[in-house]
Design a binder for these strands. Structure first.
Length: 355
DNA sequence: TAGCCGTGGAT
DNA sequence: TATCCAAGGCT
């Protein structure tokens, strides 16, 4: 059992150096050294590969990379290239703003940096289309700066090794990971360190693969040791809000308005609201209501919008003359005494505005 | 900060 | 078929 941190909470130098040695030895033996962008660490070459590899699989990138470099072998050539050629070279890769930004960045390099790439992660981010990941990748691979290149692989690998529970869907978690990993990056071979982590992340530590007992990284992997590996990285999913369309019935009788109590379970359980009728679509609301109430009148032009975590409601106020047995007519004095949902308050406000 | 940007592969 | 995801960055 390995302890990355000592009792005082300090990172163990011994474990770190053992991990680096294990990682780089594995990389030298099993890494994907055949990848074309690994035969040359010129910043221009590394840069092109890193941009192309953003959200794009390695096998897809290889032919594009070789064609691009053959057509535009230098920053200067890229800076001066016709847009038509650029789009031709990128056609099919997707995320076309990447290549437009690349030309912008090439022109920045020519105009502002005398044709030479900036040499630190921080300064590289001045260039269009280069964010924290790409800057760190270029800085480490081409210029030997010891900074972690935090991509999806590195998030996964280190969240598992160290059981880092920060939610990687939150942009603010990047800072935490950066601080934790920074002292682990090998200062002698930072570029290889970063690339080794990526190779590890696409092989032994893939998203859906558990570490095998004979893996050289098993003993460094805290989540493997307690069987929680596949829980990492922690990544919250953003639930998409299902659109829902409602008509809120406005029916007046003897100084009171129609209300209904919601079911005792589920969303807004037990609250009193205007009677709400769900429809499949926006247009169906008025049609549906007017079909059963010839004198139905749509009160508001724009719908009342209300967001739940998992639903997006759009509610139209519809005034009807008809009565319904299920409705309860409450005077203002009566309903003001009841607990109110935000949705109902919005509906009442909209009603006031539109009467 | 969340939504958006493209495509091909995997499940 | 639907959904997610892959070496992210911009607004």
């Amino acid at each position: 059992m390995i302890n990355w941190y000592d009792k005082a909470g300090n990172l163990s130098e011994k474990v770190v150096s053992e991990f680096r040695a294990t990682l780089l030895a594995w990389y030298d033996q099993k890494g994907r050294t055949h990848l074309p962008w690994r035969t040359n660490t010129l910043p221009y070459h590394v840069w092109i590969s890193e941009i192309m590899l953003q959200q794009t699989q390695v096998e897809t990138v290889i032919p594009y990379y070789e064609r691009f470099l053959a057509e535009l072998p230098t920053v200067k050539a890229l800076a001066c290239a016709d847009e038509e050629l650029l789009l031709k070279l990128w056609s099919g890769l997707g995320y076309y703003s990447r290549v437009r930004n690349m030309q912008k960045a090439a022109q920045q390099v020519m105009a502002d940096f005398d044709g030479e790439f900036p040499t630190t992660a921080k300064s590289l981010q001045i260039l269009a289309g280069i964010g924290p990941y790409t800057a760190a990748a270029i800085a480490s691979i081409s210029f030997g700066e010891a900074v972690p290149a935090l991509d999806g692989n590195m998030f996964r690998v280190f969240s598992r090794l160290l059981k880092i529970e920060a939610d990687i869907a939150q942009p603010k978690s990047r800072h935490l990971f950066y601080e934790v990993i920074l002292p682990i990056v090998d200062p002698k071979r930072p570029g290889d360190f970063n690339q080794a982590i990526m190779d590890l992340g696409t092989s032994l530590m893939r998203a859906k693969a558990e570490t095998q007992a004979d893996s050289p990284f098993a003993k460094f992997n805290l989540s493997y040791q307690d069987g929680t590996e596949l829980n990492f990285p922690i990544k919250s999913k953003k639930v998409k809000q299902v659109p829902k369309f409602y008509a809120a019935i406005i029916s007046e009788k003897e100084g009171g308005l129609a209300y209904m109590q919601r079911p005792k379970t589920g969303l807004l359980a037990n609250f009193w609201t205007f009677p709400l009728h769900e429809f499949d679509s926006w247009d169906a609301i008025y049609e549906g209501v007017s079909a059963t109430n010839a004198d139905a009148k749509q009160l508001n032009i724009s719908p009342v919008t209300h967001l739940f975590t998992h639903q997006k409601w759009q509610v139209m106020l519809v005034q009807v003359a008809a009565d319904d047995e299920q409705w309860t007519y409450l005077t203002p004095e009566a309903y003001e005494g009841l607990p109110q949902t935000t949705l109902q308050l919005k509906l009442q406000a909209a009603l006031k505005e539109n009467l």
